[in-house]
Nucleic acid binder design. Structure first.
Lengths: 242, 242
DNA sequence: TAGTGGTCTAGACCACGTG
DNA sequence: ACGTGGTCTAGACCACTAC
């Protein structure tokens, strides 16, 4: 097979696209061992160096995980990974830990202007709206309002949330083959609404941190919009940059 | 020269450390062209591939900048670079742009517990405390309270802020040879204090976003603590993650 | 012992920028 | 035309994992 038949760019980019297509299509599944570098190099008719350069960038983007002596695996959304990369609330004094997640409600809804814009769907299109409470050290620190496109997650039901590990990114991946690989986040300070204040045990109007996160899959399509409303009296949002 | 004489690890890591030492010591200065890859490979007695691998990681960390056909340069803190990587306030609708910076005051101060902890100096140690106003589209959006160690920036004077381009990271670099390569940021929602509210044209007690940023140099030593107090009525903090 | 990823070599040729 | 970084080759050997 000659990967470069359809491409103008570098050879290793062609190999990378071929691998990404297998990943995005579900041909290679999360947790799975992919063929060895030598096998892939032979398969794509490239040198081992070129093949490694193709994989290097996928490993940097945490789409693949290399393990010396064992092989290269498709990344999966396990608990540790998600805590480490997607959860940014930490105690003001103390160390990062897992939040306890409790469902508040699961509704069918329709896209408002903000949801439509972020999820690239029409205003009024059917959505699911899930609200969760996240607790650390016994205190509710965040209320997450999660909105996803019904067209994309049509078989989703409240039952799928019960008895789950801590995250729904894992659910997206296992039940729908959707892997979140990138997010962007927009943060503001706002006055707490009455219902958020109640859940966060704050007085209405007190300052809360809102995080508007859009999550993207391997094809760079938006997957969910999540608005987290955070009580930052004892916790804070932490990001390391560069 | 054999770089690997003192090291146990991979050869390219030894080359990388040798280069980093030249950068951190000021032997290679920001904006400067470093020797070509072929020259460096000869100098360090490694193959071109190994030399490139050493540089690859420094380029990823934006410590060096490669330009095909021209050479490899030491990164400098120009306006664009700083706006792109260190300034995260954007309009809620619209595109990122340069803030206008105005100095509010320049004081000598002493480290409180928070400053001491973040800058790794003693409580009560002498510091400089600079307050700036940042404006976008004619509106003040952020008040930045910047604290640095007097011991490290002893010759700093208010005059050095006048007629400067928009940032003091550039000043750190040009006047003190200190290059900021990494930051971490901790965000909270708080009620505006009376003086911050006045500068931000808000009522005291209104919600404001506070960003506590610690900046680190090439030796991974803390350089400054900057507390930004942001009016997020029309703007927001934006971060792209992964 | 066999198979995997990790490092390293010693080149070749291409794409880009400058004089 | 020349020098730079960017890509690519076809190996070799090392470090680690599993059986």
């Amino acid at each position: 097979m000659n990967v470069n038949s359809l491409d103008g760019g570098p050879l290793y980019k062609g190999v990378q696209r071929a691998l990404m297509e297998q990943l995005a299509s579900g041909d290679l599944k999360p947790g799975q061992l992919i063929p060895s570098e030598r096998q892939l190099a032979t398969e794509y008719n490239v040198s081992i160096g070129t093949l490694r350069k193709a994989i290097d960038e996928l490993v940097e983007n945490r789409i693949l995980i290399r393990q010396q002596g064992k092989g290269t695996f498709v990344a999966s959304h396990d608990r540790e990974r998600l805590l480490f990369y997607f959860f940014h609330i930490v105690p003001q004094t103390g160390v990062k830990s897992y939040p306890l997640v409790e469902s508040v409600f699961f509704h069918k809804a329709v896209a408002d202007a903000e949801v439509a814009s972020r999820l690239k769907i029409a205003v009024g299109a059917p959505t699911f709206h899930v609200r969760n409470k996240l607790s650390l050290v016994g205190e509710v620190v965040s209320v997450d309002d999660i909105t996803i496109d019904q067209a994309r997650f049509s078989t989703l039901s409240p039952a799928q949330f019960k008895g789950r590990p801590n995250t729904i990114y894992n659910l997206y991946q296992e039940a729908f083959g959707v892997t979140v690989v990138r997010t962007d986040e927009r943060l503001r300070a706002e006055a707490a609404s009455t219902d958020h204040a109640k859940l966060l045990k704050l007085k209405p109007g007190m300052p809360v941190l809102t995080i508007r996160r859009t999550a993207f899959d391997m094809r760079n399509e938006p997957v969910e919009l999540r608005i987290s409303t955070v009580n930052t009296e004892a916790h804070e949002y932490f990001a390391e940059l560069l």
